[in-house]
Design a protein around this nucleic acid. Structure first.
Lengths: 239, 239
DNA sequence: TGTACATCAGTGAACGCGCGTTCACTGATGTAC
DNA sequence: TGTACATCAGTGAACGCGCGTTCACTGATGTAC
C-alpha cells in the first residue's frame, strides 16, 4: 500500500501512518470515555491538536472512523477471548466455554462503550460494511471449534429429531460445522452464543441492577456458563 | 390532580390534557420513525404545530419526555405479552412461555426503536427514574407467576445443590417467589428471562443477519422457546 | 550546487444545520366586585 | 350588567452550543534539471 520507492517517500508514509494512528487513538479514547454518540470528528481533531478539516486528510468521513473502531473492538474482544480460551486444556470443553465467557464479560465490563458499539442498539444512519462482519466472527469461531473438537473426540453432542423449519433456518450456520454435527447441536450452539451476548449485555447495560447483587454478579455468571455448558452436553451438570 | 372546581377550570384542564396527549403522540411517532437519538423537543413541537418553547408548558425538559415514552413502551409490551399469555390454559406451562416469547418478539419487531429504548444500550446522560423500574416488571412477573403456578400444581421444578455465592447473588429475585421454590429454579428463571431479551435483541438489532434465514427466524425462535421451556422443567423435550 | 516546480499536510473561514432552554411578551378567557 | 384584574397557553427572538463537510490557501519539504 505505502509508496516507499524513495527514502523521503518512506518517511512521509511513516509520518502519515503515525498521524493516522494518533487519530485512531484519540477516537478510541473518546469512545471509551463518552460513547459513540459523542464521537465527533471535531472532538477527535481537538484531542489530536488539529483543525477539524485536517482530519479529512486521514479519514474520508465520520462513518469510516466508526467502522475502524468497530473492527478494532471486535478484534480486541476476540483476542482477549482467544487468549483465555487458549489457556485451557483442549479436552476441558466446559472450561473452554467458561474461559470464553469470563473473558467476554471482563472485556465488556472494562469497555462498556465498545461493547455497546458492537452489540448494542444499532447506530441510526450507520450501515456496517462487510469488513466488520468478518471481524465479528472470532467469538463464534471459538464456539464452533469447541463443538468440532468435541465431535472429533467422540463426545456425545446434543441430538434430537429435527424441528420443523429449523434445518432451513440454520443452513448458513450448519455450513460452519464439520459434517455429522447434529442439527440439534448447531441450534444449541447458536443459543449458547445468543445467551452469552444477552447475559453480558444485561450486565453491562445495567438491566440487572436491583436484581443480581453486585458482589454476586461474577459468581452467578459462572453458574450461567456452567448451565450453558451442560445444555451443550459439556459435562453432566444437567443431571 | 386536575382542578375541576368550576366548569371553566374543567374545560381548561381537559384542553391541557388533550394537548399533552397530542405532544406525547407526536413524540411516540418520532421515536417509532427515527429512534430515540433524533427525538428532540423542537421536532415534537414542529409536529404538533407549536413553537418549541410552548412545549415547556407541558413537559419540564427533554428527559421527562423520554421517561414517559419509556414507561409507555414497557406498558405496551407488557400488555401485549399478558394478553397472549392469558389466552393459554393455565396448566400448559410451555405454552404460556411460548406465548409470552412470541408476543415479545412480535412487539419488538413491530416497534424496534421502542425495544431499543427499553432494552438496548443505555442513552448517554439519561438516568432512568424509579418510575420506569416498576413498569419494567410486567414480563418478569409473567415468568414468576408461571413458576409459582407450576410449584402449586406440584410440577417438578429444577433443583440442584446450591452453587457457591448464588444464594447471595440472587436474594432479591428469590423474594419474588413463594417459599419452597428451589434456588436452582430461580436461577434458571432469570436465565430464561435473560435469554428472551437476548434472543429478541439479537433479532431486532440485526445480529442474526446472514446467520438465521429471514424465512426461518420465527420457526427457530419457537425452537429456542421450547428448549428454554424444557430447560425450565416445562415438558420433557430435554430428554 | 542552485533554482523552478510539484507535492501535500495542515489552516482558517465559512455554510447550513440542529439542538435545549430562557425570557419578556401578547392576547384570549374567565373571575370578582 | 360592566369594568378592572388575574390566569395562563402560546409567541418569537435570542443565547450559546456543537456538528459534518467544503474550499481556497499557506508553507514546508522533496524532486528534477
Amino acid at each position: 500500500m505505502t509508496d516507499d520507492a524513495t527514502p523521503a517517500a518512506a518517511v512521509r508514509s511513516r509520518a502519515r501512518a503515525e498521524m493516522k494512528h494518533a487519530i485512531l487513538s484519540a477516537a478510541r479514547e473518546r469512545l471509551a470515555r463518552d460513547g459513540a454518540q459523542s464521537l465527533s470528528l471535531r472532538a477527535v481533531a481537538r484531542d489530536v491538536g488539529m483543525v477539524s478539516s485536517a482530519v479529512y486528510r486521514y479519514v474520508p468521513h465520520r462513518d469510516a472512523l466508526l467502522t475502524e473502531l468497530i473492527v478494532e473492538s471486535y478484534d480486541s474482544l476476540g483476542a482477549a477471548a482467544e487468549a483465555s480460551e487458549g489457556d485451557v486444556p483442549r479436552g476441558d470443553l466446559a472450561g473452554r466455554l467458561r474461559a470464553t465467557g469470563r473473558a467476554t464479560r471482563a472485556w465488556a465490563l472494562a469497555n462498556p462503550h465498545e461493547w455497546a458499539l458492537i452489540y448494542g442498539s444499532p447506530i441510526p444512519g450507520y450501515a456496517a460494511p462487510d469488513l466488520t462482519i468478518s471481524a465479528a466472527s472470532r467469538i463464534p469461531s471459538l464456539l464452533t471449534r469447541m463443538l468440532a473438537d468435541a465431535q472429533r473426540a467422540g463426545v456425545a453432542l446434543p441430538d434430537a429429531p429435527p424441528r420443523p423449519g429449523e434445518a432451513e433456518a440454520l443452513w448458513q450456520v450448519v455450513e460452519f460445522f464439520p459434517d455429522g454435527v447434529p442439527l440439534e447441536t448447531v441450534a444449541r450452539g447458536l443459543m449458547v452464543y445468543t445467551y452469552l451476548l444477552g447475559s453480558v449485555s444485561a450486565q453491562v447495560f445495567g438491566q440487572r441492577n436491583n436484581v443480581v447483587t453486585e458482589a454476586g454478579a461474577a459468581a452467578f455468571f459462572d453458574g450461567e456458563l456452567d448451565r450453558m455448558a451442560a445444555f451443550m452436553g459439556f459435562g453432566d451438570l444437567d443431571g
